[in-house]
């Protein structure tokens, strides 16, 4: 279905904050660490109600990753909080050695991912994080699409043993998924069934893909719309079955095409069911300052870009 009831507009980072607070109540093993961005990460409520399980680490992200790895020794489940840029590239070796290779049960929670961080500009707009994290053996990579899904994913990853990268963002976007939903790691959400084109979307691009699908269907192009919230492990069956049905694929992500969802879907289909494919994402470029909407339009991540990609890939040429 495509006719969602919008439950207002909210930021995915607030979904994380609410989920973390719920975990504080329900799971005494959950601890939280933050590198001087409590307000930005919406960790205030957890800090207020569970001060003995909250750790301020200052502007020292490398140390934070090591601390989190160490806190698992003794049975705790650490959630680290900082911007996506400082959660990945800045601390890649710490994550690689002390967390992923060491199989530590750390949840790396990353806000302000992608272009929609906005005015701060390219230094902070990481567009390579999904690629970096997906390459690490043993890492689970999740990029939810709205407030409710982010909250549910935050709660779900505490029950999963192993390192997780949870990516979310800064801007307010439509909240359209169900409140208090159950989040299933690695199980794609089949939003809508159609026969002409498959659209695989993640993160903030999912709502744009819903709007694009409505426009496409109005023109007689039916869309098989799938939300890939878990990029690793990928729901290969859902991807391949949809591609077999439609024979035409569009991927949509707020990330570099290379190394991101587009690469991963293309690699999967190349192996199991080679299919025509178009990629909506950032094309080998850094971002810049601007409002989120301006940036998404300039870098080709708008609703119209998804529609255009779907038309290109379904053309008989």
């Amino acid at each position: 279905m495509l006719d969602f009831t919008i439950h207002g507009s909210n930021d995915t980072r607030s979904g994380f904050g609410e989920g973390l607070h719920e975990l504080g109540k329900s799971n005494p093993k959950v601890v939280a660490l933050c590198a001087d961005l409590i307000g930005s990460l919406k960790m205030d409520a957890f800090k207020k109600d569970f001060p003995e399980r909250f750790y301020q680490v200052g502007i020292a992200e490398a140390n934070m990753m090591g601390l989190a790895a160490g806190m698992t020794i003794g049975g705790y489940i650490p959630f680290t909080g900082t911007f996506a840029n400082f959660s990945t590239g800045r601390v890649y070796d710490q994550i690689r050695q002390s967390i992923a290779y060491s199989d530590k049960n750390v949840k790396i929670c990353a806000s302000h991912a992608g272009l929609t961080l906005g005015e701060d500009g390219a230094t902070h707009q990481i567009l390579e994080d999904i690629g970096m994290m997906s390459m690490l053996p043993n890492m689970t990579v999740i990029n939810p699409c709205d407030f409710n899904q982010t909250k549910a994913a935050t709660i779900a990853i505490a029950e999963h043993h192993g390192p997780v990268y949870l990516r979310f963002g800064r801007p307010k976007v439509a909240t359209f998924t169900a409140p208090d939903q159950k989040f299933e790691i690695g199980k794609a959400w089949h939003i809508h069934s159609g026969n002409h084109v498959s659209i695989f979307a993640t993160g903030h691009m999912v709502w744009k893909a819903v709007e694009a699908a409505k426009a496409l269907e109005a023109e007689g192009i039916t869309v098989d719309l799938i939300n890939i919230h878990t990029i690793k492990p990928l729901d290969v069956e859902a991807v391949v079955n949809s591609a077999k049905k439609t024979g035409a694929v569009v991927t949509a992500e707020e990330h570099q095409i290379t190394g991101g969802l587009g690469s991963i879907i293309a690699q999967t289909l190349a192996k199991y069911h080679p299919t025509k494919i178009e990629f909506v994402g950032v094309n080998d470029s850094f971002g810049e300052s601007g409002t989120p909407d301006q940036l998404m339009e300039k870098y080709g991540l708008g609703v119209k870009d998804i529609i255009a990609a779907a038309k290109r890939v379904t053309s008989k040429s």
């Binding site: 990753m65 090591g66 790895a69 160490g70």
Partner: peptide, 27 residues
């Protein structure tokens, strides 16, 4: 062995995390 090491400079952070876990556990 409780964590991988070799890429230098990481062990003190990990140990401090483990030390804080001990405090939480009243160990």
């Amino acid at each position: 062995i409780r964590v991988a090491s070799g890429s230098l400079g990481q062990g003190l952070s990990v140990a401090l995390g483990a030390a804080q876990a001990k405090k939480l556990n009243n160990d």
